[in-house]
Design a protein around this nucleic acid. Structure first.
Length: 853
DNA sequence: GGTCGCTCCGTTTTT
DNA sequence: CGGAGCGACC
């Protein structure tokens, strides 16, 4: 479409270099160090920029693009820049615009997935798809696989949607299809044969549904290019400069895509190009030369092997692309030397890497702070207090991030952050669009765009409940398949099937709704009617189905939150309509399908960011907490048995450390709750790899595990002296107390395991019951307070009134005096000066406090 | 056909 | 401890 109209109108050939000979300094090279400058100005067929963490690679990349455009070596529309997240793409576009004015018009800056969707939507008809295809997320894929496995009775062979799905995903990332796998498998193994059956059926079903899964987006684009050289030629010609960020995390499919895009256009394809090629585009042999490729990466930050990333792509780049130049960026502009020294020390233990050392001219900075908690709650409490101290010292909340290895670690952290009235946000985890009610509503939109999609259709039938059960669904599905109809058409003709009057009525009115919505979505060009905004469509669906009202009518307080989520979705749709007027339903669905965890990071939100270390890649914060630095968690137990697993975990640790600019905290707990009961945790081997002088242990592992256990000897920590043991015994008592008293709030997840069985069971059953009741009440009352509300572990002080001067007692901080109360309603915050620990801010409603008479 | 409650399952990281 | 899935009841 319009992208192609932006092709160079004046015919300036690729490679001509009209303006570099101008005298005077180049503002785009100004302020760059020699390596950076080389990385911006180097020209040639291929360039590898080895960019250590914080070495200014985004700057180099944006300047390089701006340089190409300003020097008239390329038009914006000839540039394709691939980033890892949509947020990174938006940021890059913004920075280029900042350098050149609105120059990014027509440029493709996007993720692999977004770029491929764009290509596939445009070319879908070429290979039997329709532009309105659905993108299946992993949950959709699993739903489809579940059906297939059941049909083939494959569950008796141990197949599950999850394991079959991940195997298919792995194969697709290797560009292997079902036939390809069948050719290499052990044909005498019935399990293998069955898997091929599953794989084949899955592919058929996807095609029938006019849907692609995540991996298809890349893989099918590669297939498209390979089977249609004329289509490939269009893109090979168009993109003269291809730049790929985070190249160390590309998988084979992505690598192949880049390979296809950087092939020269052969003479016989050149003839077929529209518009025809100009003389300036061609080389002596009548071909259009290959695009120039720039990749940026750092093999030390490769952390996605589990999803097929192949580190060899970057390691063997020079061999792969002949004539490649390599530029190394080693000077770091982000972190203090202490942080870098720790990072270097850790990553230095990976023997299979190219030697590289980050350094900075900025000085040592503060020492790294270490802390070992008695439990994960204790650890979380430290984090919350320390965040508050940093904030008091003038650091904005948004400059602070808390990292962890697994998403399940958020619970304890959230609990303590809520109590401390620290605003926070969790990136990733159970994402907004993965919530059941959101998927329900989205199913309507998906089905409107693609009425052949069985997953979306099947989902919307039962949401909300309307009397159409599995029986009716099966009949309709059979009918639709027999007659080759869309699901909507099948429903409109449901009168031809033997349904009872009630069911028939439900089906008919649902069919009418969908038909009406589909008409609105399509618009009517003849009557000058534009496609309806997405927000209107969604509102229509929600109004007609009464989804929100039905949720509100339920007693369960969680349903209120669900209703609010739906309203939030309407707001998201409206925002989309404003930001991209006329973009349409399809664009909205695409955007929603491809949001990444890091995409909702909002720098102006004024909140602390919680995320996994994987999500943290590419980001930076003034202060970083890495939590759960324990054996079994970091490195994760699962990775220890895998070949190269620990090395990848070490790179993950390296990524985490190098996100920090000024302050780094490494925290762990000596015990961690796994499932229900408590197990002992050992400090991570990575801690030993950091020179001891770099860490200032506020509480070392030795002080906590005590008694000269093997753990403490393994560490570089100072020997825990007298003060540690006093603290330990006091806390030990605390935690026992809170176990016994179910009503006191706090950490009841503790260890009931050791107490006598009979009373222990009764006690825990009672605790559970009380806990549930209180949680329900708390969430009911706390509505609208914080974006993240944890269920089941929040206490509620009801309408506790506090005024300056009041004395209170806190479960952990002891007694103190209220100095001020700010905020209103559920967000009332008490500022309390404690006798022992000084000033703290507490959320009146949720803090474990009581007023003293 | 829907709802409730029980049991059993399971936890790495994600576009 | 939490969620999903299934079986038994209404």
């Amino acid at each position: 479409m319009s992208d192609f109209e932006l092709l160079d109108p004046s015919g300036i050939p690729y490679g001509s270099d009209p303006s570099t000979s101008e005298g005077g300094p180049d503002p785009l090279l100004d302020g760059l160090n020699p390596s950076q400058s080389r990385a911006v100005s180097a020209r040639g067929p291929a360039l590898l920029i080895v960019a250590g963490a914080g070495s200014g690679k985004t700057r180099v990349l944006t300047h390089r693009i701006a340089h190409l455009i300003r020097n008239r070596e390329a038009w914006p529309s000839q540039i394709l820049a691939i980033t890892f997240t949509n947020k990174a793409a938006a940021e890059m576009r913004e920075r280029i615009d900042g350098l050149l004015g609105a120059a990014s018009e027509g440029m493709w800056v996007s993720t692999f997935h977004s770029a491929c969707v764009r290509i596939l939507r445009r070319e879908a008809e070429r290979f039997g798809y329709v532009a309105g295809f659905t993108i299946y997320d992993s949950a959709d894929s699993r739903a489809l696989l579940k059906r297939i496995i059941k049909e083939l009775d494959a569950d008796t062979y141990g197949f599950t949607p999850a394991n079959a799905g991940s195997k298919i995903s792995r194969l697709k990332n290797e560009l292997t299809d079902a036939d390809g796998y069948a050719a290499t498998m052990n044909a005498s193994d019935p399990r293998d044969r069955l898997f091929v059956e599953i794989f084949k059926t899955y592919e058929q079903e996807l095609r029938r549904a006019n849907a692609f899964d995540f991996d298809d987006l890349i893989g099918q684009t590669v297939q498209l290019f390979r089977s249609h050289p004329d289509v490939a030629a269009v893109y090979q010609r168009r993109f003269r400069h291809i730049l790929v960020d985070e190249y160390q995390d590309t998988n084979h499919a992505q690598y192949s895509l880049i390979r296809e895009l950087t092939r020269p256009v052969q003479a016989e394809q050149v003839e077929r190009l529209v518009p025809p090629a100009r003389a300036g585009e061609l080389d002596a042999a009548g071909r259009i030369p290959a695009a120039s490729l720039t990749v940026v990466g750092d093999s030390d930050q490769s952390i996605y092997a589990f999803r097929g990333a192949d580190i060899r792509n970057i390691v063997e780049f020079e061999r792969d692309f002949s004539g490649a130049e390599v530029v190394k960026l080693e000077q770091n502009y982000r972190s203090t030397q202490n942080i870098l020294s720790a990072a270097n020390a850790v990553i230095g233990n990976n023997f299979d890497r190219q030697e590289k050392n980050l350094w900075t001219a900025e000085g040592d900075g503060e020492r790294i702070v270490g802390f070992t908690g008695y439990s994960q709650h204790d650890e979380a409490r430290f984090v919350a207090e320390e965040v508050e101290d940093l904030h008091r010292a003038g650091l904005a909340y948004s400059d602070v991030a808390v990292f962890y290895r697994t998403n399940s670690q958020t619970r304890a952290l959230e609990e303590l952050l809520i109590r401390s009235a620290i605003p926070y946000r969790v990136l990733g985890g159970t994402k907004f669009y993965e919530r059941a009610e959101i998927k329900d509503a989205m199913a309507y939109l998906t089905s409107i765009a693609n009425p052949y999609d069985p997953i979306a259709w099947s989902r919307l039938l039962g949401a909300p409940k309307r009397g159409i059960g599995p029986m009716a669904e099966a009949h309709l599905a059979n009918f639709q398949e027999e007659h080759g109809l869309s699901f909507h058409e099948a429903m409109l003709r449901s009168g031809e099937l033997a349904f009872g009057p009630k069911v028939l009525g439900s089906i008919q009115s649902l069919a009418e709704l969908l038909t009406r919505a589909a008409k609105m979505a399509a618009g009517d060009p003849e009557h000058d009617q534009a496609p309806a905004p997405v927000g209107d469509l969604l509102k229509l669906i929600l109004d007609e189905t009464e989804m929100v009202e039905k949720l509100r009518a339920k007693r369960d307080p969680q349903d209120d939150a669900r209703a609010e989520n739906l309203e939030e979705l309407v707001a998201v749709a409206r925002e989309f309509d404003v930001k991209q007027p006329g973009a349409g339903l399809l664009a909205f669905l695409t955007e929603v399908s491809l949001v990444a965890a890091a995409d909702d990071l909002d720098d102006s939100s004024g909140t602390v960011s919680l995320m996994t270390m994987h999500t943290a890649k590419g980001l930076e914060f003034k202060a970083v907490f890495i939590t759960g630095v324990e054996e079994g968690l970091l490195p994760h137990q699962m990775s220890v048995d895998e070949v190269g697993g620990v090395n990848e975990e070490r790179r993950l640790m390296y990524v985490g450390i190098t996100r920090a600019r000024e302050r780094l905290y490494l925290t762990l707990a000596s015990t961690r709750a796994v499932f229900g009961d408590v197990s002992v945790a050992m400090p991570s081997r990575f801690l030993q790899e950091i020179p001891e002088g770099l860490i200032d242990w506020r509480q070392s592992p030795g002080e906590v595990t005590g008694r000269g256990g093997t753990e403490s000897r393994a560490l570089n920590a100072p020997r825990g002296g007298g003060s540690g043991s006093a603290g330990r015994s006091r806390r030990a008592v605390d935690s026992n107390v809170s176990f016994g008293s179910g009503g006191s709030g706090g950490f009841s997840s503790g260890s009931a395991a050791v107490s006598e069985p009979a009373s222990g069971n009764m006690q825990s059953a009672l605790d559970k019951w009380r806990e549930r009741k209180r949680a329900a009440k708390a969430t009911q009352a706390a509505g609208g307070g914080f974006p993240n509300t944890i269920m089941g572990s929040v206490r509620d002080n009801g309408d506790l009134e506090l005024a300056p001067g009041d004395r209170i007692r806190h479960d952990e901080y002891g007694e103190g005096r209220v100095s001020a109360v700010t905020g209103v309603g559920t967000k009332r915050i008490a500022h309390v000066v404690f006798d022992s620990v000084g000033e703290r801010k507490l959320l009146v409603k949720l803090a474990p406090i009581e007023k003293l008479a």
